[in-house]
Write a protein that binds this DNA or RNA. Structure first.
Ligand SMILES: [Mn+2]
Ligand SMILES: [Mn+2]
Ligand SMILES: [Zn+2]
Ligand SMILES: [Zn+2]
Lengths: 151, 151
DNA sequence: CTCTTTAATGAGAATCATACACAATCAATT
DNA sequence: AATTGATTGTGTATGATTCTCATTAAAGAG
């Protein structure tokens, strides 16, 4: 679960002259305790925290999500139109990809070891420092195929 | 080049009770004539067309891009923060993926036959109708690694 | 070709996710 | 305990995308 400790986060932040704040620690913990297959938008996270009595401003939420994605701690996902979703960026055995229905946004996660290898190799070949590697499949789910609704 | 003819577009549209308009035809042609490796945002497309004397409204541009992505004619790409980019969705020998620097948005295209096979198989297994399948690698390019700028 | 139906367009206003500005706070370091 | 500048919260701004609605014009029928 807690593949990423508070201590490790603090170390990585301080190394760059940044700081570990209670807000950042709390947000990381939310993602670490998030059930498998869940993905949170900025607003989802804000509401989740508010429900727990944790009052972290939306600005800080947005800043933290972006920061952690840039650090490679979180993955930024485009699972629906209009807003991003986030989840922990986990290594090998937990690393996965997403099959998304473009009409109803139903999302299925699936694993494939080859893809991560391909991503790692490709980044390395170009001298890029890998942060995340995700296969996104856009498709229409069985239910939506049957539906007569347009688009 | 013109893997997708105007006639085919018209047939596919009419089949669903929709119409082939001069605007839709023009927009498809722009993408078909776009040099390899180019990606257009809605505004890019709008400016490109304006430059050619083609005056298609931004509303229509947005509607058409979304429509064609939903039809599987265009791919919707997240190559930069804040707005989408589009390119033709081409089959096998031209199908490719993207390695993106999250700091400067420099993008490199690369090919990998296995990924498309994986995507096709995964969609099929779940009964989804495949529209697009793209591996997105988020990373930091060599230049940005050297840069001292934050984030 | 003409007529009818209704999808599509253009112009502008509305939305809403996200970024920004800035004064107050507080984490890190000495 | 004092210093320094990164971070936060509040409110405001931005900007990509969508919506509204009157007008236009494809598609299909006759
Ligand atoms: Mn996931
Ligand atoms: Mn491309
Ligand atoms: Zn669906
Ligand atoms: Zn870069």
């Amino acid at each position: 679960m807690a593949s990423y400790t508070t201590v490790a986060l603090k170390a990585e932040l301080n190394e760059r002259g940044w700081r570990l704040t209670p807000q950042r620690e709390t947000i990381l913990q939310v993602f670490q305790n998030l059930p498998k297959g869940n993905h949170l938008s900025a607003e989802d996270l804000y509401n989740h925290l508010s429900g727990e009595g944790e009052n972290i401003s939306l600005s800080t939420i947005y800043r933290t999500l972006k920061l952690m994605a840039r650090m490679g701690i979180l993955r930024e996902l485009e699972l629906a139109e209009g807003h991003k979703h986030y989840e922990l960026n986990q290594p090998h055995p937990h690393h996965h990809h997403h099959l998304i229905c473009v009409r109803c946004n139903k999302t299925i996660e699936f694993k494939n070891d080859t893809i991560l290898k391909t991503g790692t190799k490709t980044a390395q070949k170009e001298g890029y420092h890998l942060l995340d590697c995700q296969l996104t499949i856009h498709a229409i789910c069985p239910a939506c195929q049957r539906s007569l609704l347009p688009l």
